[in-house]
Design a binder for these strands. Sequence first.
DNA 1: CACCTCTTCAAACGACCGTTTGAATCGTAT
DNA 2: ATACGATTCAAACGGTCGTTTGAAGAGGTG
Lengths: 214, 214
Amino acid sequence: MSAVDTKVRILDAAELLFAERGFSDTSLRQITSRAEVNLASVNYHFGSKKELIRAVLSRYLEQFMPQLDTALVVVLEDPRQPVMEQVFEAFVGPLLALNRFRKNGTTLFLQLLGRGYTDVQGHLRWFLTTRYGVVIEHITQAVCRAYPQLPPPELFWRLHFTLGTAVFALASNRALREIAENDFGQHLDIEGVIRQVIPYIAAGVAAPLTTSKG
Amino acid sequence: MSAVDTKVRILDAAELLFAERGFSDTSLRQITSRAEVNLASVNYHFGSKKELIRAVLSRYLEQFMPQLDTALVVVLEDPRQPVMEQVFEAFVGPLLALNRFRKNGTTLFLQLLGRGYTDVQGHLRWFLTTRYGVVIEHITQAVCRAYPQLPPPELFWRLHFTLGTAVFALASNRALREIAENDFGQHLDIEGVIRQVIPYIAAGVAAPLTTSKG
DNA sequence: CACCTCTTCAAACGACCGTTTGAATCGTAT
DNA sequence: ATACGATTCAAACGGTCGTTTGAAGAGGTG
């Protein structure tokens, strides 16, 4: 088995287990067992568990972030004012592209985002602030174009609420889709859930300002 | 030290650590060390770590859920049709009441909710389905009164998005409040954040239906 | 006082963790 | 064929984990 094969097998097994059980509830022995590689190969190829976590996150972020940024720039360079839904439609293509990059890639990515977000070590925060700050900036600008009257503090809070909505809701979509199918006979794939969440998010961010201060 | 004292000291220390670091990243030795009790007392008083986790969650849920249900019943028994914001205003009182029950109780509760929600073991799901199903039902009914045209599947998804928004956003509010204070000079307490999130949630749940199916 | 129950305590248990080690093996260029 | 760096492997390391144990302490009752 070639060295690159081993690295990929570890990453593939690790991302499944990390997404499902979290970083610290997944042991290197579980990973190497599922990947069918030797235990020591993780430390040989990645140095430590911490760096493996970063490699798993990085593989997705490097795929997703440039595509998202491109889609956002398209919105920003259009001279017409966008409506809020258009801004969040920019996320759909890059998110779904992850499914061609890897089976269930979209869901896995969002689950990993959720894990990285609530993680104590702050792996995700490190990536977003040091490497992809410009993308965050473009998101802010695009929302600002769609809703210029929104004051910066409200914009800040609502974008954060949106991150929570998206990650939390879409990360656990598999179990929910089963419930929805049983209770309503509604068969939805991940794209269907994304299509459901966009009106919610857009309406939330575009909500009217409360004039009173209580 | 009386036995009840020891139990309370363990619960108090455990909930802080659980909220901050998660359930499995918190060891019984960390808990008993902070609580200044003997290590074995956790197993003596609670049986196991798993049951301690449930006890921590239960202490909050038993305080919160009846109050929430009462507030929801008030909305439901009012013959006038509520607007969506009124439905979610029903959450404010019970949430803030936790601050009188315990220091930073509101934030701690929401952080614990987030931990319990993403946890593999499904501690939270167990409580919500077996013990507080009627409250979930009342939430659904109240939203239904405010927006009768909303079809059940959309209602289902939007309520789930809302849970994600609330838990995810409010659970990590401390760090965000500091950022908001530095960047915008905006000093917000937890009630302020709740006041910010309600228009977002209400607008999201009340979002117009997309007529097209793609 | 002795007795009994509840509680605390230090110590240890076996299991699992991430990591390291040093030898074995592989692939390839000389 | 031989030599050599890259990779794999089984085994072990020290450490932490949740839990258990059996003795010691506390506090009320006869």
